[in-house]
């Protein structure tokens, strides 16, 4: 016997597989940024994160790649999820990329390397193991800040 105690608030749903594929592309770009220590590469990744935060995951740069190149090749049912938590994770990524970019532009390589490393670790965890660190933080934040 299943009963549900769910709210019916409107949500924006996305293909739940998309963020993990985007995380895989992000991991490659951040690894490249780390190896080359290039402010241009981290600047590009910052723009990608920002596009997801501002326009949503579907209309972000990697979202566009996923929808046009990867999604048509996938089969089976499409799992969906509310985009709020993965979008929040993109915001966290954008903050780390911004700090790394600042470090790169100002010649502070320790700041660049530490911030890029954290962003890469989080992206790799999502891509390889399906663990979305930003999404975990999102629920904890809701728990801490939202009134019942």
């Amino acid at each position: 016997m299943l009963t549900t105690n769910q709210s019916n608030k409107p949500v924006v749903l996305i293909d739940a597989r998309g963020p993990r594929y985007s995380a895989a592309i992000t991991s490659v770009v951040l690894a490249l940024a780390l190896i080359t220590e290039s402010s241009y590469v981290i600047g590009f990744q910052f723009a990608v994160f920002l596009s997801a935060v501002l326009f949503g995951l579907r209309r972000s740069i990697y979202g566009f790649i996923y929808r046009n190149l990867i999604q048509p090749r996938l089969s089976g049912p499409v799992p969906s999820e509310d985009q709020r938590a993965p979008r929040f994770a993109q915001l966290i990524g954008a903050l780390f990329a911004f700090v790394a970019l600042l470090g790169g532009v100002t010649g502070n390589s320790a700041v660049f390397l530490i911030a890029t490393s954290f962003a890469l670790g989080a992206a790799f965890l999502n891509a390889a193991f399906g663990f979305c660190l930003g999404c975990q933080i999102y629920l904890i934040l809701v728990r801490l800040t939202k009134r019942s």
Partner: peptide
């Protein structure tokens, strides 16, 4: 056996 799904955000 009763099975209840609870929306965490609505039951903080």
């Amino acid at each position: 056996i009763a099975y209840v799904e609870i929306d965490a955000e609505s039951n903080l």
